[in-house]
């Protein structure tokens, strides 16, 4: 096949693909436009059960109480992704960054504020937008900022203590679920009097794990033991 033929074939392929994708987009748009005007969804059931959820923010109630399974499994996904990254090799030797004075001053000032912010987001998640994932992301951002500005992990950290924090979120979640199962017979069935405290407990552990897991993912590999 000559080069011209191949180019013509590639062009034809592009056009056929474009037409197929336009048909797909049209179908999806038609599906959206033909949705009924009034659909109850699940918001009424959420509103009706808010009293028993232990929190006042409906999104947190869905995440940690009504659909707790999703969040539990998601912590598992995070951990499995990190295991996958770690199994591919050790973190690339980052070049030693000597931070400029402005950068290290800025990082030194920002990181404590970001940790405080993470705590605030975690606490406020019970009654306003916020929660474990938002707090964990802020925590991860501060960790990445520290890594980018050349701060190294202390030698004792990559060992057991890092792994402990990584599994803490999933471990606490499963432990709370199993304990509740022995008490009430159903996995993750919070009694409504204790729900608020238990959710905050699970969320605090999840925040730590999410923050550290995302920072560890940023490293792109298993941290070296010896370093």
């Amino acid at each position: 096949m000559s080069v011209a033929d191949r180019n013509r074939l590639a062009l034809l392929f592009r056009w056929v693909l474009l037409l197929l994708l336009l048909a797909l987009a049209g179908g999806l748009a038609y599906a959206l436009l033909s949705l009924p005007d009034q659909a109850p969804g699940l918001s009424e059931r959420v509103t009706a059960n808010m009293e028993r959820s232990g929190v006042r923010n409906p999104v947190t109630a869905v995440l940690l109480n009504f659909r707790g399974y999703d969040t539990l499994l998601e912590m598992g996904v995070l951990l499995v992704a990190l295991l996958g990254v770690w199994s591919l090799g050790t973190a690339a030797q980052q070049r030693r960054v000597v931070p400029e004075p402005v950068l290290s001053f800025l990082v030194g000032g920002l990181v404590p504020v970001m940790i405080l912010m993470a705590g605030y987001l975690l606490w406020t998640g019970a009654h306003a937008p916020g929660g474990a994932f938002q707090a964990g992301s802020v925590l991860a951002a501060s960790g990445i900022l520290l890594l980018l500005s050349g701060k190294r992990l202390p030698a004792w950290l990559p060992g057991r203590s890092l792994r402990f924090v990584l599994v803490l979120g999933l471990g606490v979640f499963v432990a709370v679920g199993v304990t509740l199962m022995s008490a009430s017979g159903l996995f993750l069935q919070y009694p409504s009097s204790l729900a608020g405290g238990l959710i905050l407990f699970v969320e605090a552990a999840a925040t730590l794990s999410i923050g550290v897991t995302l920072s560890a993912l940023f490293l792109g590999g298993r941290p070296d033991q010896g370093e």
């Binding site: 918001s43 959420v46 509103t47 409906p58 999104v59 995440l63 659909r67 999703d70």
Partner: peptide, 16 residues
Amino acid sequence: PPDPVPHAMVITGIVV
């Protein structure tokens, strides 16, 4: 008020 269930799904989805 907006349905909280899709919002919770999106938060989960972003992290995944």
